[in-house]
């Protein structure tokens, strides 16, 4: 019984947040100086044709009615047609989003797998050599621009060392050879049993994902370190030492356990940041993801595509935020009470 009410509340705030998001994209669609009617009839049409089309498109209706219609369309997955690709925006997004998702997910896995232990380690040796090195790495994550790191990475690991594949998701001769199941090349190639394609996809994704992972790592390690230091100063750490608990367990059980929930929020934010912030990396690596799609759409004043991509990015952001929020409540005994 006590579980039902918060769940209902949660779904309600989720719905309201999405409605807010839709309102924002709707308003953006109205205020940009691109006339949707002209986009359809062309700039040489007579004023009669223009007005008739405008009415047919429902643009004379009150804004509330237009908004309700817009919400209805989005709910059915109708995002209009893209002027630059000539295909439905929803279809385009279904193709480009998995590419971004795959790269960002690999990035966040790398960021968490390295960043969390680094933060814990830095806190355990506060002020010493290892801590300083980790702090410099953290700073670098702020100071170095993503595109620069991407270019340097390509020059060294692709052009010189030939350790990784170049731009794109897969070697061109394998392009289109893997049937789409999930849209994630690493997964689809495995489903298909095509190891050559898997290896090629991996060699292409590893560099951009590692670079994204580096930015996630810098942030995650820094936050982990400061959360850990806060816990290590608590009285219950002394209690654990009084009981004779070894330092390794003091770190991972007594100090780390209480911060897991805070870390979920940090990781969620950083993951959302990778998903929406991969524009630079996608450009440098010609990665056919949502960042690239959005850039192209913006340059072509392709309004439907811009709004659709914005909506997806916003929805992902909201989804991850709310998801980590829910996990927080589920995992923290203090928040559950």
């Amino acid at each position: 019984m006590t579980r039902v009410l918060p769940a209902a509340q949660f779904l309600l705030t989720l719905a309201v947040t999405f409605l807010g998001l839709l309102a924002i994209t709707f308003v953006i669609g109205r205020v940009v100086p691109i006339d949707p009617v002209v986009a359809v009839v062309g700039d040489r049409a007579s004023i009669e044709t223009y007005n008739a089309t405008k009415e047919a498109m429902g643009l004379d209706d009150p804004l509330v009615v237009q908004f309700a219609r817009y919400v209805g369309q989005v709910a059915q997955g109708e995002l209009g047609t893209s002027v630059s690709t000539g295909r439905p925006v929803a279809e385009d997004l279904a193709r480009v989003f998995p590419a971004t998702f795959e790269m960002a997910t690999l990035g966040i896995i790398i960021g968490v797998a390295l960043g969390v232990p680094m933060g814990v380690f830095a806190a355990a040796r506060q002020g010493r050599m290892a801590d300083q090195i980790i702090r410099v790495i953290g700073l670098a994550g702020y100071a170095i621009p993503a595109f620069w790191l991407g270019l340097i990475g390509l020059v060294i690991f692709y052009a010189h060392l030939r350790w990784v594949g170049g731009p794109g998701r897969i070697d061109f001769f394998l392009d289109g050879m893997v049937p789409t199941h999930t849209g994630l090349l690493l997964v689809d190639s495995l489903i298909d049993g095509n190891l050559e394609a898997f290896r090629s996809a991996l060699s292409h994704i590893i560099l951009p994902a590692t670079i994204l992972g580096f930015f996630a790592l810098a942030y995650i390690a820094r936050m982990t370190r400061s959360f850990m230091l806060e816990q290590l100063g608590q009285e219950f750490i002394t209690t654990a030492r009084v009981k004779g608990v070894p330092e390794r367990l003091i770190l991972w059980r007594h100090a780390f356990r209480p911060i897991r929930v805070q870390l979920i929020t940090v990781i969620g934010l950083s993951y959302a940041g990778l998903l929406e912030g991969s524009v630079m990396i996608e450009t440098v690596f010609s990665w056919p993801g949502i960042g690239n799609y959005l850039t192209t759409a913006l340059l072509n004043a392709d309004m439907n595509a811009v709004l659709g991509a914005t909506l997806v990015i916003g929805a992902v952001f909201v989804g991850i935020n709310k998801g980590s929020d829910a996990l927080y409540r589920l995992l923290d005994p203090r928040a559950r009470a």
Binding site: F236, T239, A240, R241, V242, K243, G244, R257, D332
Partner: peptide
């Protein structure tokens, strides 16, 4: 460390802070 908890131990001041909140 082997002695602590087994041969000598210590009760701290405030249980609100001296017990681990998530265990």
């Amino acid at each position: 460390r082997d002695l602590r908890g087994t041969a000598m131990s210590m009760v701290l001041q405030d249980p609100k802070f001296s017990l681990n909140p998530v265990i």
